[in-house]
Nucleic acid binder design. Structure first.
Length: 569
DNA sequence: GCCGTTTTCGGCCCGACTGTTTTCAGTCG
């Protein structure tokens, strides 16, 4: 049984206990589930070592339940809960505004135990007639159901970031607001985003709220107060804003940036010092004296931590690292000197090599590698050996003509189902950059897929493995692949792994990268651009690398052209 | 149910908004 499945069972217990009104236990189960879900090691392996109780948040009781799950595949305690309460009650809590208390009441009074039943009861006006409920609640439930059904998937960071930055810029230009910042998961640059959070400082909060709720793209105002407001955009995206006083800005920004787990640990640290941390500041518990709050830096410093970049705030060890002053020196967004995987109109790209080069210049790059698709990828007009030779002549000509940018000749060659490449070594050996990727046979078993990629890595001319896991966020799972083996081989053979920065790929992912750190792998952050506008996606790749704790030295395309050429030869 | 350099028992993050109530419970972030 996989870690994720064990965690799922524990989450289910937490939900049931919460509905039953049991105090504290739900949080204990949830904490354990969260830890197990994000564990790098297989829980079965830990169990066989007899070290379940060494997992943080797992004690004797949860350990024995995990044991039962691993040994028998099911869990008596959970079965009992399932008999006591219908499973659908958990679905009800997915609806905005419905928590454990409401879910239980709906079940007890109206026998509602699924979202469909909830919808029909609301439509018949049965809910507004219940004590403690009213017409507004019923309306909200119906809207919540609609939202639940339309917004099942979180939105890709790459699509939402420009929208959020647009709103941020407009608020900044509004004179009533003194300071504005994005917060929440978008500031942490998570790969998918649920909603947009904004923090503002203003002397006149109500004016900011008016401006905010009257933006043209607002479809519905969900709530509006002097300190908080929420709106729904016509795109069904929710945007929340908090307005605070100047001396609380850092505290509010810190609090709203999260993550929740990170914040809980911070508050624990504050409690240890007899302080309390809220979105208004860090205060002495007894005297209420303000210790910090105007900037995030002050708060982290007061708690004895070095400043933690938002991308790291996931409670993956960053707090302990900050306590011991051993946080990584993260790669910066401005460190990138080139892009080693872009397409041109020689395959499925929309723009010519010259146009791509101009776009690269405007990003202040020193170089780009034109890595068009190769012949077996018919759908993308893949090049054969002759096309490649011809195209290389064009690259040579452009390099003589253009100043300030160097175009490297490359391909994105296909790795066939046995690990062979679809372009001969004769041609590969004359190219500057060879990216090798899997574009077919995604469903191969783990061993075969791993061997297939290892075989490609052993080809002397392969420089980079493209989008190593093949996942498409929200659409296609990663292929079955033994990443530790790939990491080992990459270090040993000097093959670079790609951090593909396309918004729906981000492959390798932040957690993959985090896991790779002990292997000493080097990476290339590539846009995989299919037109010149896509080249800015490298920013998303840098965000992913930062979330994976990577430093400049880990990323090969932070090197100057001269340094890079030495590495590739 | 977990946890502990103050603890093996007694705590467990904190505050705003809504809706339904006349003072607050529930939910959310």
């Amino acid at each position: 049984m996989e870690n994720r499945e064990v965690a799922k069972n524990l989450y289910e217990i937490a939900d049931f206990l919460e509905i039953k009104g049991v105090p504290f236990k739900p949080r204990a189960y949830r904490r354990a589930a969260k830890t197990i879900e994000t564990l790098l090691e297989d829980i079965g392996t830990i169990y066989r070592r007899g070290e379940l109780k060494k997992i943080p948040s797992v004690g004797a009781s949860i350990a024995s339940k995990i044991e039962e799950l691993l040994e028998t595949g099911s869990l008596g305690y959970l079965e009992e809960l399932r008999e006591e309460l219908p499973e659908g009650l958990r679905d009800l809590m997915e609806i905005e505004g419905i928590g454990p208390k409401t879910a239980l009441k709906l079940y007890e009074k109206l026998k509602i135990s699924s979202i469909d039943e909830l919808e029909s009861a609301a439509r018949q006006g049965k809910i507004s007639r219940l004590e403690g409920f009213g017409a507004k609640t019923e309306e909200n439930i119906l809207r919540g159901i609609e939202l639940y059904r339309s917004a099942q998937e979180r939105v890709l960071l790459g699509y939402i970031l420009p929208v959020a930055q647009g709103i941020e810029d407009r608020l900044k230009s509004f004179e009533g607001a003194a300071r504005i910042s994005l917060a929440g998961s978008i500031r942490r640059r998570r790969e998918t985003i649920g909603d947009i959070d904004i923090v503002a400082v203003s002397e006149e909060p109500l004016k900011v709220m008016d401006f905010f709720t009257e933006m043209p793209e607002v479809k519905k105002v969900l709530m509006k107060g002097a300190t908080r407001s929420s709106v729904l955009l016509s795109s069904n995206l929710q945007v929340d804003i908090r307005v605070v006083e100047k001396e609380s800005f850092g505290a509010a920004l810190q609090y709203l940036t999260g993550s929740k787990e990170h914040n809980i640990r911070l508050r624990d640290l504050a409690v240890d010092k007899h302080w309390k941390l809220s979105e208004y500041g860090l205060f002495d518990r007894e005297t209420d004296e303000r210790i910090a709050g105007e900037t995030e830096e002050d708060i982290y410093q007061a708690l004895g931590l070095s400043y933690i970049e938002p991308e790291l705030r996931e409670n993956r060890g960053e707090i302990d690292a900050a306590l011991e002053q051993r946080l990584p020196d993260l790669v910066k967004y401005t460190d990138m000197k080139g892009d080693l995987h872009v397409h041109s109109n020689w395959s499925e790209g929309a723009h010519s090599i010259g146009e791509m080069a101009e776009a690269a210049k405007s990003l202040r790059y020193e170089y780009i590698a034109v890595c068009d698709h190769t012949k077996t990828l018919q759908i993308a007009h893949g090049m054969n050996e002759n096309n490649i030779r011809e195209r290389n002549k064009e690259i040579e000509r452009l390099n003589r003509e253009k100043e300030g940018i160097t175009m490297l000749s490359g391909v994105e060659v296909n790795i066939d189902s046995n690990g062979k490449l679809d372009i001969s070594n004769e041609v590969l050996k004359d190219l500057d950059v060879v990216v090798a990727s899997v574009h077919s046979g995604f469903k191969q078993p783990k061993e075969k897929m791993t061997k297939r990629i290892l075989t490609a890595m052993h080809n002397d001319y392969v420089d980079i493995i493209g989008h190593p896991t093949g996942r498409i966020i929200n659409k296609r799972a990663e292929y079955q692949i033994d990443l530790p083996k790939i990491f080992e081989a990459a270090t040993e053979l000097g093959v670079i792994l790609e951090i593909n920065a396309f918004p729906d790929r981000l492959d390798l992912s932040d957690t993959n990268l985090f896991e790779s750190r002990s292997y000493g792998v080097r990476f290339s952050i590539n846009s995989d651009a299919h037109n010149k506008d896509h080249m800015r996606y490298v920013e998303l790749g840098v965000a992913t690398a930062r979330r994976g704790w990577l430093e400049k030295k880990d990323i090969i395309n932070t090197l100057t052209l001269e340094e890079l050429k030495k590495q590739l030869s």
